[in-house]
Design a protein around this nucleic acid. Structure first.
Lengths: 152, 152, 152, 152
DNA sequence: GTGGTCTAGACCACA
DNA sequence: GTGGTCTAGACCACA
C-alpha cells in the first residue's frame, strides 16, 4: 500500500506530490498492475488534504495511462513502470545504500545528496555516457526523455 | 554562473524552481559568498518568464538569508550551503558518477535513478543509519532538517 | 468568438458540453490556430456556470493537444480540426442545408434529424461504404476512429 | 431489438446513454408500441454495466411516458416517437444516405458530419426556415421542443 | 461505499 | 486581469 506524504511547505502542489509519489511507487514495483490505489477517503484520512485534490491527482494518472478509475470500485493500476535492475535485492540498490550511508555519515544532508545525484545525472547525460560505456547497449543516447523535475 | 531551466510542464511554480536551483548551486559550491545572481533581465532572456517571477524567487532567497539584493547593483550570495565532502574531486562524487553510469547503462532512466535514491535516503533515515554507522559523528540523527521535496 | 450554450437538462456534464462545442468550432473552422478562447470569466458571464467548470473543460482540451493555457494571458488554440470540404461555401454544406430544410419542413424535429443522421452514419460505416464507393480513396475503411457520443 | 452501446469515455452518464438510444429507436420506428425493451439482465450481459443503471434509465423513460414496466413481465413501449417521413424507404433517408456517403468519401469524419449537421440545424432554426419554406406547414416555428443536446 | 460533477469562495502565480 | 490550486460541501452515478 502506498502511503502518501504531503509536504505543504515544499511549494509543490499537493496533487503533483501525489502523482509523483505514485509514479515512484510504480517505478519501484511497490505498485503493480491490478493493484488498487488507496481510495480518496483513505488518502484524506492519512494526509488531511481534500478529496477533490486526490481526485485531481488520480485523474492525471489516468490520463497518463497509468491507472483506471472505476466508479463504485476504486482506482486500479493498469501499467507498470517497474524496471529490471531496480529490484529490492539488486546489487545496484545495495551499492547505492552503501554510498548513501557514506555520504550521510560524511555530513551531507538529504538535500546535498539529491543535489549531488542531480549533478551526476546531468554530467552523465551530457558527456559522461561515452566515458563510462565500454560496450554499446540499447539505450537511446540522444533522448533523455521527459525529465521529471527532480530538483527545480 | 547559474543558468536556470524552467520546466513549465512540471506543475511546480516557476519561482520555486528558481529558488531550488539556486539552493542546489549553493550546495554544490557553484555559487559562493559574494557571487552575483543573474539579473532578472538575464533570467528573462534565458527562460522567457516574467521578471516579476524572478524577483519573487530572489525575495524568497533573501528571506531565507541566502542572498542580499542591493539596489542598482544586483543580488549577491551572502551565505554558502557548500558541504565538505561534496567537492568536485571528492571520492564520494567519483563513486557516485560510477554508480550513476552503471545504473543508466543497466537501462534505468533518470527518474528511476531519482526514485531509487529517494528510497535509499528514506531507508537510511528510517533504519539504515545504525546498520551503516561504525563510528559516531556530529550529525543530529533526529533532525533531518527541512527536507526538500525531492520526489513529491 | 465561440459562445457556449449549456443545456442543464441534457444530463451531459457542463464541462463535456464546453469541450464538445469547442471541438465543433475547431472542426468548422470557427476557431483557428492562435485564436484565444473566451476567458473563464467571460464564459461564466455568458453561461452562469462556475469558473472551475470552465477551467476543467479547458484543461481537458489542453490535454487533448487542442489548446494551450498561458497564465496571465489566456487560452489559445494550438491545433485545428478543420477539414477541407467543410468550408462555409462548399457544395456539401449547401446540399446539407437543402436536405435539412426538406426534413424539417416534412415535420421532422431536430432530434429526428439527428437520429436519422446517426443511423445513416452507422449504415455507411457498417456496409454502405462499398455500395457508395465507385472509386477507391484514401479513407481507412477499417477504423472509424474514436466516435464521439453523438446520440447516446 | 435495441442493442445499447455504452461509451464509457464519452463523459455521458450511462443511464443517459440508454435513455437517448431508446428514444432514438423510438423515433426511427425500430421500437414500436407494445415492443419489449431488453431486460436488465440482457443489457448487463451486453454492456457490462450494473442492472441498477438500467433500471434507472427505464425509470426515466417511464416517467417520460414512453414505456411501462410490468412487474415480472418486462418493460414495454407505450408510446411511439415515429415520424412519417423517417421511414426506411423514404426519399429523405435515401438522399441523406447519399449525402453522408459523399461527405465521408470527401474525407470528413463522423464527428465532422455531426458538426456540419448541428450547424445546419442551427442555421435553419435561426434564419433558414423562411428562406427554404415555399409552402407553410403545420410545424410551430416558435417551439423547437425540448432539444436533445446533440453536440454539447 | 467509491468515484465524479459542480459550486462558492479564498488565495496564489504570472504577465 | 487571467489562469491555477485548494477547500468544504452538496449531490449524483454506479456497483
Amino acid at each position: 500500500m502506498v502511503d502518501y506524504r504531503i509536504d505543504r511547505r515544499s511549494g509543490i502542489p499537493a496533487y503533483v506530490q501525489i502523482v509523483r509519489q505514485t509514479e515512484r511507487a510504480l517505478r519501484m514495483g511497490v505498485l503493480r498492475v491490478g493493484d488498487r490505489l488507496p481510495t480518496a477517503r483513505e488518502v484524506v484520512a492519512a494526509t488531511a488534504i481534500n478529496p477533490n485534490t486526490v481526485f485531481r491527482a488520480y485523474r492525471d494518472l489516468e490520463q497518463a495511462g497509468l491507472v483506471r478509475s472505476r466508479r463504485g470500485l476504486g482506482t486500479f493500476v493498469t501499467r507498470s513502470l517497474a524496471r529490471p535492475g531496480a529490484e529490492d535485492d539488486s546489487p545496484l540498490r545495495a551499492d547505492l545504500a552503501d554510498w548513501v550511508a557514506r555520504a550521510r555519515s560524511a555530513g551531507l544532508e538529504r538535500d546535498d545528496v539529491l543535489a549531488l545525484v542531480a549533478v551526476a545525472l546531468d554530467a552523465y547525460e551530457t558527456h559522461g555516457r561515452e566515458r563510462h560505456e565500454h560496450e554499446p547497449h540499447a539505450q537511446d543516447p540522444g533522448d533523455p526523455g521527459r525529465r521529471q523535475e527532480d530538483d527545480a
